[in-house]
Nucleic acid binder design. Sequence first.
DNA 1: AATGAATGAGAATTCATTCAT
DNA 2: TATGAATGAATTCTCATTCAT
Lengths: 195, 195, 195, 195
Amino acid sequence: MPRTQEENDRIRQAAKDNIRSAAIAIFIEKGYHDASIDDIAKRAGVSKGLIYNYYKGKEELLAEMVRTRIEDINHVMQTAATLDTPSEQLVHIIEGALHNVQQHPNVYRFYLHLQTQPEEDKVLARYSQMLNEAMADQFEVQCDMFAKLGDKDERMTSLYFSSTLHGAMQMISTYPDRFPVDDIKKKIIQQFCGG
Amino acid sequence: MPRTQEENDRIRQAAKDNIRSAAIAIFIEKGYHDASIDDIAKRAGVSKGLIYNYYKGKEELLAEMVRTRIEDINHVMQTAATLDTPSEQLVHIIEGALHNVQQHPNVYRFYLHLQTQPEEDKVLARYSQMLNEAMADQFEVQCDMFAKLGDKDERMTSLYFSSTLHGAMQMISTYPDRFPVDDIKKKIIQQFCGG
Amino acid sequence: MPRTQEENDRIRQAAKDNIRSAAIAIFIEKGYHDASIDDIAKRAGVSKGLIYNYYKGKEELLAEMVRTRIEDINHVMQTAATLDTPSEQLVHIIEGALHNVQQHPNVYRFYLHLQTQPEEDKVLARYSQMLNEAMADQFEVQCDMFAKLGDKDERMTSLYFSSTLHGAMQMISTYPDRFPVDDIKKKIIQQFCGG
Amino acid sequence: MPRTQEENDRIRQAAKDNIRSAAIAIFIEKGYHDASIDDIAKRAGVSKGLIYNYYKGKEELLAEMVRTRIEDINHVMQTAATLDTPSEQLVHIIEGALHNVQQHPNVYRFYLHLQTQPEEDKVLARYSQMLNEAMADQFEVQCDMFAKLGDKDERMTSLYFSSTLHGAMQMISTYPDRFPVDDIKKKIIQQFCGG
DNA sequence: AATGAATGAGAATTCATTCAT
DNA sequence: TATGAATGAATTCTCATTCAT
């Protein structure tokens, strides 16, 4: 007697999730190139073959991961946009970003690693670019916020803001134990969400 | 007619340099993993075997590269230290850093990529760490500068400064054509080398 | 409410036939090796599992196919044998053969491909051999026909006839659009069914 | 001290030849799909890696083989063309073809197998087609011969001739021990090289 | 000092087959 | 009877490294 449609869907979804989680974990631990399908299969506790049942290959696992990442970024931006004042919006972005890096420095590290992939890497260049574009989108949204904040030179300020914020994120992910996140957060808020 | 000792040394050194240059170029173009020894040999115009004559393997070529990089960083810091005022010193660091990234965005990209290597990568983690330590050294030197500048909270300022500077460098290397380097440079100088 | 025995048999037979048809179609389109069980299951509109319910594996599907082929060949020969004169009998064979190839060049092609399978192919060699034996049987029957036609050297004539006929079939299947089937048919009939 | 250029060339050529021979032998024994690179490496007594040093992959080994085959076919045709009378020319073609199959039935078998590859096989279809084209070229040359022989309907005769000849070849390769090659050869010569 | 032929360990991927439901 | 999730053995191909010359 075959399983019902629903049951199969459930099993499939569980298996996919399981594999995706394992892949994410392994990618973050070892990096994309060093992670083998075998590693992922072992971590997920499934056979190599099953991974190919659900994903076209290693690259698709990365694609899924990047897609999720971009959605997360966009989600933060959209939530920010619902807040009342530009000042609060920027604070939300800052806190979201720094909190995230602080909680998962390796994840930020992974994506920064991906973004800095040599452009010649035919496989990864696409994902690198997708992340850069997401950052560019984020930048545009920030420009609006600074404009609403009364900034006359909002593009320059947004750039400077992004530099500072990403610099801080980079530092946090590099020295996760030593970096005084809260103090830096205050400084950034004070500098850019000034009022 | 055997070569003289000196002549041999000269030949050896020239060959080593040649190989190192080729390796650097290829690593930066393709990244460490994607660069093959064959690529490097071809670029250097020598045989694969010769590379192993001078270097223990691929990894040692990277080690050499990282060593040079760290020396370059230290060199900038030392030169800065010879300047008269802390303000001039910081300006020198800023200009050196930004100019460098602007001239060779891919080089900065390469090292940032290396620094963000997953820690589990047994081969590369060491180099990642070495670069981080160099950055930490740089940080300490900067602290002195900010202290001399009269800053009471020089460690925090130095951190914030490093964040901002590295953030800017990251942005330049990501968007080399669109980023207004000079404007940002001015802003950084104004903010940190202030008065 | 359990099904009756008959009903079950009917269902089983229908399912088997369905699968066999799908397998034949896929085998002919893609060849044995390139055809996947998945392809066959999709074409038949059943699950992979069901195929294994009715057939031991991929090979048995081929076996079934070859069995049918041989039956078809024998059927043509038997029908020929019911005709009155040896001349008519041979004409029937020729027309049957050429018509068949002309209608389904890919089918002939498939079996010729199978017959020319390397002998070492442990899986397929058996089927190759079965087809060759069927051809040998056909040859014997033809010998009788040529004998009845008054040929003193009937084995040689039958061989020459088979060569010519199979050569023509090979040409038709290779150049299905360009080959003047009817003209060649006439020539063969004229040459061999002459008297 | 490195080897001289010549010495290397010699070594390379020997290795290539060795690999090619092994590949041909294995392909003929097991067929293209069933032959693994491992098989070929073992037969050649070299490592798998070396094969990829000399050939882009499995397909290139086949390509080389097919190229040689076509050259051989063309060579027979060209040699035939140098003979004085069309009758002698045709006899030369017949003898060349039948002798060849008789000596190496498995080789003929291999190429017929290749020619009958399903068209959907994306890898092999090209080679199949190349062989068919070589056969078509051969056909055109034969037409001229029959024309010179005074045949009014030379294209039809050439087709019929080709059918008969290829049919015989197919039979020889199928029943190499039982087929009376010389007798059939005489019959073909008698039928087509008139005089 | 210099060469490049040769190796072999390891990676991604495919697919016939099994088996719990 | 029927399903399709899961397996794992086999295969192609890559590349850092070795070593005879």
